[in-house]
């Protein structure tokens, strides 16, 4: 059964091609496990916009859900 989980998302933030980038960690609570990875990023962005912060920019891959788990422009690593 899909549950709700609380996670931390450590995302690379870089303002522009020549800017220095850095990792920023965000708390994301109550994420539905049935959600796709991209939907999770959307939820994070909703939260950021609500806090008047800059949302995370990413390429919306076209609607091929099979590649959603390996979305263009991202590599995902897990750490606990």
């Amino acid at each position: 059964m899909d549950q709700y989980i609380d996670i931390k998302v450590r995302v690379w933030r870089q303002a522009g091609p020549k800017a220095q980038g850095h990792f920023e960690t965000y708390d994301l609570k109550h994420v539905f496990q049935g959600a796709s990875f991209l939907e999770m990023i959307d939820i994070l962005n909703e939260q950021l916009v609500a806090e008047h912060k800059d949302p995370v920019t990413y390429d919306h891959a076209p609607s091929r859900p099979a590649s959603c788990t390996c979305v263009s422009s991202k590599t995902v690593r897990r750490s606990l």
Binding site: R10, V11, T57, D59, K74
Partner: peptide, 19 residues
């Protein structure tokens, strides 16, 4: 869990913004 998300790291794919 902590999930780390970063853009493709490749010389031929320069970062535009964030991911």
């Amino acid at each position: 869990e902590t999930i780390t998300v970063e853009p493709w790291r490749s010389r031929a794919f320069p970062v535009i913004k964030d991911l």
